[in-house]
Design a binder for these strands. Structure first.
Lengths: 344, 344
DNA sequence: GCTGATCGCGCAAGCGTTTTCGCACCAGGG
DNA sequence: CCCTGGTGCGAAAACGCTTGCGCGATCAGC
């Protein structure tokens, strides 16, 4: 069992001091070109691998970050976490993933652990209900980046999907298709993601000189399919003209579609529908049934991790970094007429 | 900026030697009860947190494991990874997540990095195509556990969903419902997961003295919805009696259902259907449309991580640890008759 | 009261790197 | 020839913890 070569082994074999070896390999400090070459050659020959733990020990940088998730198993957390940890891994950074859902006492315990590891930074994934307790003491002030969270953008580093942009894009696309009576069926008002999408949607409609269908504003409800069904009923009952709808998520969109279909209203012929979330993302059929936005949470996670490393490196400044949701054109806007079977 | 208290600080304040402080806090070695109490009290008062890096440095244990994923972003990898990393986090173990998809050269580079960190163990998630290159040199022989992988069960530590058990459970459930002409529409033969489900299914049918419908064996095809559609057509065209089907995944099941519905065959009244994967898992409707199995990959990941820590601790022996897929009873076996709208 | 075992504790080595300080050497300007 | 400034390199400290070894004190057994 050949032991691993240490740096002093390299130094000895190369005939230089440990100091010189360290400098030659790390690239800092003054070493002559020939000495450096000799050391590097020796290191390779001995298959030298620097011991990161020893390095961490002396530099204080652990090359480990903490990933604090609201609810790690959640639909939205998973891609964020995987995106982030995967990026970190590529950059040779380890992650200790902690599920913050629990009492503030648990969070405190977790923070202790992170400090104990001399963590380089923290990535907060999703909205942490205990966010208020995320107070870093002065002797443990590491960079924090928020992924897809409603943090305060002025002082925090945030990476999030561009809900506003998606709302705008949805409206613009429907307008481009020639639709004029466009409604927006969304979830609860004052939810950050909802408000942002409403704002973008409204702005695009205003810019086109169009009034939002069904009363000039969004229809607020919930994220449930049930609400989509109810909203469709309400739209039909109102008798008001509606030829397109932007739904706050795919569940609502499916509720709308099912109800319209039952009433003989064709999609997209009579009413075009755009959803959000891409929940059905390529699950079924080769042809995409529902037009929707994929918030690309994996990318959000990656970018958040990238940003965290930047901040750890001492660069970058606070603010929100938006990731553009990817529009996926499906038959609910493109045609041919969507049948229930198509969605299966 | 108060510096962190080190163990020697604790020792000094408590009036003992560094050695004694270490022993009192770690619990190993001989220390009198009163001294121990005094040290612990002092440590708490000073908010002492042991420096894990220093500890790693001296003990050689890094409290970091490598997570090697086949394709981290994949549908199946994500829950495995999240389950594993989350469990590890709970146990205060960090993870460096690496996507092994790439050349063997990349994998070699990754292994170097892991060695460089003195990793405690490796978790292989999913089937690694480069598995053959996962050769650990003798100076880097750490425990390896495979999560949901087709590793060799005699020599490796494996945690996987019990596909065999699911196949058996599916058949048994359908038999319990009084069905007698039960078919199995599955994917490609010789795929480990497929074969295992076939084996379980066949065993249960044999035990009940029943012959598998549609020729005594499974219908092999692919995992695509298209195959479900084709299989349904074939079943209908054959004229053979079939009153229940176990499909290899939910896509196939949906293809079956859609086609049957178009032909006026009611589900579950005429034909009951059970799928696999729980892809639609609670996405839509409050009532579950499709009866299916949830392989509970998060749990598989957790158990694999748990197992890895056990092996690192020097215990446990090779073999497969099966996680039982969770049966989810939906309307495709329970009724009332499933309509396309219900699935939306 | 003597011997040997056990107990409680401290000294000091050691883990592998980075980094500060300092020394010797050399070239160029005064 | 001296001084300055730069260059190439090495000695040694430091990081915070674990642990083998040893020493005095206490204790059990006879």
């Amino acid at each position: 069992m050949a032991k691993r070569a240490s740096m002093s082994d390299v130094a000895r074999v190369a005939g230089v001091s440990l100091t010189t070896a360290s400098r030659a390999l790390s690239g800092v400090g003054r070493v002559s070109a020939e000495t450096r070459a000799k050391v590097i050659e020796t290191a390779e020959r001995l298959q030298f691998q620097p011991d990161m733990i020893a390095r961490s020990f002396v530099t204080g940088r652990s090359f480990i970050v903490g990933v604090l998730a609201e609810h790690a198993h959640g639909r939205f957390s998973m891609p964020l976490i995987v995106g982030a940890t995967n990026y970190l891994g590529r950059e040779n950074i380890a992650a200790v993933t902690l599920d913050a859902h629990g009492t503030p006492r648990v969070l405190t315990e977790y923070l202790k652990r992170l400090r104990s590891r001399r963590i380089d930074g923290i990535l907060v994934v999703g909205d942490d209900p205990n966010r208020a307790s995320l107070v870093l003491s002065e002797d443990f002030a590491v960079p924090v980046v928020f992924a897809s969270s409603s943090a305060t953008p002025e002082t925090d580093y945030v990476v999030a999907p561009d809900n506003r942009g998606a709302g705008r894009a949805a409206a613009e696309h429907l307008i481009d298709l020639g639709r004029r009576d466009i409604a927006h069926v969304t979830a609860a008002v004052h939810e950050p993601a909802v408000d942002a999408r409403v704002a973008g949607f409204t702005a695009a409609m205003d810019a086109a000189g169009l009034k939002i269908a069904m009363g000039g504003g969004p229809l607020y409800g919930s994220y449930l399919q049930r609400w989509g069904i109810d909203a469709a009923e309400r739209i039909i009952a109102s008798g008001q003209p509606v030829d397109a709808i932007f739904a706050a998520n795919d569940e609502i969109a499916m509720g709308l579609f099912g109800t319209f279909h039952r009433h003989g209203i064709r999609v997209p012929d009579d009413i075009a529908i755009i959803g959000y979330d891409n929940r059905l993302g390529g699950v079924m059929r080769p042809d995409v049934p529902l037009s929707t936005f994929d918030p690309d949470l994996v990318t959000v996670g990656e970018r958040a991790a990238e940003r965290l490393l930047t901040v750890i490196g001492g660069e970058g400044s606070p603010g929100i970094d938006y990731v553009q949701p990817r529009f996926i054109e499906g038959r609910s806007t493109l045609g041919p007429t969507l049948e229930p079977y198509d969605v299966l």
